[in-house]
Design a protein around this nucleic acid. Sequence first.
DNA 1: ATCGGCTCGCGCAA
DNA 2: TGCGCGAAGCCGAT
Length: 483
Amino acid sequence: MIPALTGPAGRPFQFGNGKKHDADYGQQDPVNTPLVHPDRIRPVRGGQPGPGPVVYWMSRDQRAEDNWALIHARSLAAERDVPVRVLFCLVPSFLGATARQYGFMLRGLKETAASLHRDGIPFHLIRGNPPDEVPRFLEKAGAGALVTDFDPLRVKRDWLRRVCERITIPACLIDAHNIVPCWKASPKQEYGAYTIRPKIHRLLETFLEPFPRLPPQSVAPSRFPDLPDPDALLHAPGLDDSVPEVPNLRPGSAAGMALLDEFIRDRLSGYATDRNDPNRPGQSGLSPWLHLGQIAPQRVALEIRAADQDDDSVRAFLEELIVRRELSDNYCYYQPAYDAPTGIPDWARRSSEAHRGDRRPFVYSLRELEEARTHDPLWNAAQNGMAVTGKMHGYLRMYWAKKILEWTPDPETAWRTAILLNDKYSLDGRDPNGYAGIAWSLGGVHDRAWNTRPVFGKIRYMSLGGCRRKFDVDQYVRTYGIS
DNA sequence: ATCGGCTCGCGCAA
DNA sequence: TGCGCGAAGCCGAT
């Protein structure tokens, strides 16, 4: 326990008497109400808070609304009567991201910055390597405390660790992405959805609570930085512009919320029956906005639940939004090799090794796969569709990934290829969901053993015939294939 | 259209 | 120690 981050009740940065908040605490005085559940908060560095502003280093959760990390930063600032500043550190090269993903992110950030400025909170975009630049900014701003948002990916955890080594002010981490904080849902890597599901459901009542609405900042600086200029930033040297932005797509929190409204109004009621047909717009399509934190999963869950629609559909959607998404965070948080075949379950690894030398019916190069030039029109259509639209239907993602295992020389190549292509073309690349999905498809993670097959061993196989039985493959190929 | 067998191991009841 | 059952299947029999 770190003294500077601990309130009188032993709960970090508590306000008031610590009693459970009411359903709507928009009316309440932030100074006298514990706004953020203490289990959402993780102190990562102790020390005496300085007299300067509280800085929220925004990373995974790029929104001004419904953001527990920002809410906590504002609470800290209100308590100490200092301003809040939001910092975003733009890295010129991040895990294979291209102009497609940077464009979506930067246009969203511009909107977020404008919202923050309206609330009296300056948004600072800096560029460079976070372990160098974040401490430098904190020093220059005379920051008194640091707040940041939780991300289970190695590179993000590494940044935070190194930032903490270089600063002298207290710092804390908030899980603003998961409804049940990742470390609270489970203390270990879970074996499957069925093992984490009851743990999450037990805690939902506590954590799936309404967001407080805070008044504009009373202590606000007189000067605000310029809003970020996405078009200028996209031309920065070193930025991979090999994949263009997706036209006719609206990044940002407002567009994400509009898409959510449209989904609830027009498509949620059919979700239970339509979601696994790639020819129907049965899925929400929210994943790019969720991935970049432009909208909060918790906001989505609250709205879906309030919609009071077809029970099966609501249940099925919340299962995917909450249980399976948070299982992905659990996997990346507790499994260091979340993006390699060394992290898969024992039965899968034994089986996979036994079939390493199996003859592959087709072997394609990265280039052939990337250019969608295989013998399988469905696979080509899925790959081509992703390259053009930046997304791929959830059901086809499994098929697409499994075929990469079947058509490359070894599992290592398959993992590398699947991750590279997903991260390069998908708007939701580099997300724990993507890593967990690939681990499920290629490594049997969160799955069970199945009938032994060549190459796959006991890892679940999927076939073109199976797809034909489930949906109209030819229609999909007509829509997304290369003619 | 529908059913059963395939196959492993976690978590819980006992 | 035994037992139920699981992140989206496949295949062949009926």
